[in-house]
Nucleic acid binder design. Structure first.
Lengths: 212, 212
DNA sequence: GTCTATATGCCGATAGAC
DNA sequence: GTCTATCGGCATATAGAC
């Protein structure tokens, strides 16, 4: 109950937030790899540079910490879709969306993995957001895509499946990075490989829906 | 150590195998949803219709059970890729591969999810297979695809990225089925939705790599 | 092979001094 | 706010009778 409003710049509240953020960052790392049951609070505390007792001072329970982390990453995950714009031409908008999602896979792989983990379990925590926010957001963007198809600007494609394909193809490089690295020897951290990935994914998807 | 050779049809060994299989099937269900740490042996035992103690008679430890389950599902996961054949024309072979993988997502979603879970953790158990079997298997199939590109039978595409895209797009429907269902209201169990998914995924990927 | 206890260790959470 | 010490519960695994 210390800071209900996240951005009040009170001198003390700042330090508290900093510590909370450090703990949440550490928690994201371990949660995303081992899941909530596989991670020990001790481990999170050590990674964050605090004691286990101290961690429990800032977050009343392990589950509370998990929820806090989940809330944070949902925004990261949704940002690219929110940025999807009708104003551009279809192929530009979709190409841009693919690039943004691949940047998330590169810059926030742990968030992507935790999101995936939660999904595998049936999204017990995110179900409300999935059937509310996300569903309507997807409906919006699907309508845009359907509009393009109707106007003859895009090959006939089911908007939902197209969105699924983009999600799948882009997240794969974060969620299955172990496999990607085992097969290619590269990760998205490698600048050249990142560019090559963007080009290939963009080309495959866009050529697949280009009008002709 | 009861049955080193899995398929000896001795009368008793048969019953033992049946029980072991029941336990492994139950374990797959819970492991794939909650992970190894999130599942309780009691839960697995109940689902399999045996007592917890009895379960530990057949599998010496939780980890041993987990390893046994993982070994089993790797074959399921790899089967479609092994079936990928050079003899067909490129677009037929790839279309067929996509259908096979989507059938796995429909018929063995739990196996797909457990595989995904293991990958998220960095594949501690599968690393050997990933850098051995899988890597060389992918190298083989990549060579076939590269050959098609060189012969002018396929648009220039990086074989690895193409394989990743197929993996991602098809597994998505199993691993993220919660999300798919939240957005569309359907699952692959729905015959019509399955067909629609096969068609859309095949079309998008194939149109993206068709020569023109 | 299957059961009823029971041992054992770990880990989340609390108490209470400072 | 941070520490040391410790509790209490739970879940894996074992002992031993049948």
């Amino acid at each position: 109950m210390t800071d209900q409003a996240p951005k009040k710049p009170g001198k003390r509240t700042q330090a508290v937030s900093a510590k909370k953020n450090a703990i949440m960052a550490a928690a994201l790392t371990t949660f995303s790899q081992f899941g909530i049951h596989g991670t020990r609070l001790e481990q999170v505390a050590e990674l964050a540079g605090v004691s286990k007792t101290n961690l429990l001072y800032y977050f009343p329970s392990k589950e509370a910490l998990y929820v806090a982390v989940m809330r944070n990453i949902l925004d990261i995950w949704l940002a690219p879709l929110r940025a999807f714009r009708q104003e551009f031409t279809p192929l530009v908008a979709i190409g841009e969306y693919i690039r943004l999602k691949l940047e998330v896979s590169r810059d926030h792989p742990e968030a992507s993995r935790l999101f995936c983990l939660e999904m595998l379990q049936g999204a017990p925590l995110l179900m409300a957001e999935l059937t509310g926010d996300l569903k309507s957001l997807v409906a919006d963007k699907s309508a845009i895509i359907s509009g393009w198809v109707a106007e003859g600007k895009l090959a006939p494609v089911d908007p939902n499946h197209l969105i699924f394909m983009i999600w799948a193809a882009t997240q794969h490089y974060a969620d299955f990075s172990t496999q990607v690295e085992a097969v290619t020897g590269k990760t998205l951290q490698d600048e050249a490989f990142f560019q090559q990935t963007v080009d290939n994914v963009q080309r495959m998807i866009i050529e697949g829906i280009r009008l002709r």
